[in-house]
């Protein structure tokens, strides 16, 4: 089965959010609707040693996510209107705006918080991997604009062959939950076992 997927390089993302802005622009999204989102995740603490404050296990990195076009998408399963659909031909999950009743179950069910309610139209918006751009031979806007070339897209199997098969990074849920179509390169520091938290004020 064909499955389109994302690649993200967390080891070189600078958290600049150009992907977020490119998504906003291409999809004409108003404030409150963030279909791609960059969050900062970090942790560690400070100790005083010999009179000097010193960092101990302090780390930070960024994670850029949108809809993961999961192989087991809970949003599709919970949608009472049949609006949320997974496309046969490429596995991209799309919302049918004609059928959507704006109940928000999909957002509630999604562990990535990917579908968002448009406050004007009261229907759900979500990342569709810029299928209209892809149809015209363009890349998804987030990929084409990343200044650090941290984002890529393509067939899941091809991305795995190229970048490995890690599909989980804190603060995202384990890939076992929904089988996201996602490959990630984790940062060099730290180990993911280190306790951390999402730093962004907006997300706290």
């Amino acid at each position: 089965m064909k499955q389109k997927a994302w690649y993200f390089d967390a080891s070189s993302c600078i958290g600049c959010k150009t992907c977020e802005m490119a998504c906003k622009d291409t999809n004409d999204l108003q404030v409150g609707v963030r279909l791609r989102r960059v969050r900062e995740y970090g942790g560690g603490h400070w100790i005083v040693r010999n009179g000097f404050e010193q960092p101990a296990g302090v780390f930070t990195y960024f994670v850029s996510t949108s809809c993961m076009h999961c192989q087991e998408p809970p949003c599709v399963n919970v949608c009472p209107a049949g609006a949320m659909q997974k496309r046969e031909e490429d596995g991209i999950v799309v919302v049918d705006s004609e059928k959507c009743i704006g109940c928000g179950y999909c957002q509630w069910a999604c562990p990535y918080d990917a579908p968002r309610l448009d406050p004007t139209t009261h229907i759900m918006r979500k990342c569709d991997m810029c299928i209209d751009l892809q149809d015209r031979g363009e890349k998804p806007a987030c990929v084409a604009n990343c200044p650090m070339r941290c984002l890529d897209f393509g067939e899941l199997e091809e991305l795995r062959a190229k970048y490995g098969d890690v599909d989980t990074i804190m603060p995202l849920p384990s890939g076992d939950v929904t089988k996201p179509s996602f490959v990630v390169t984790p940062p060099k520091y730290p180990s993911q076992s280190a306790g951390g938290r999402i730093r962004d004020l907006m997300e706290a």
Partner: peptide, 18 residues
């Protein structure tokens, strides 16, 4: 500040002089 550039360059905070 242990900044985003440092994080993206893979710097350990052991190599950070705050």
């Amino acid at each position: 500040f242990f900044h985003p550039t440092a994080a993206a360059m893979g710097v350990s905070t052991d190599d950070w002089l705050p």
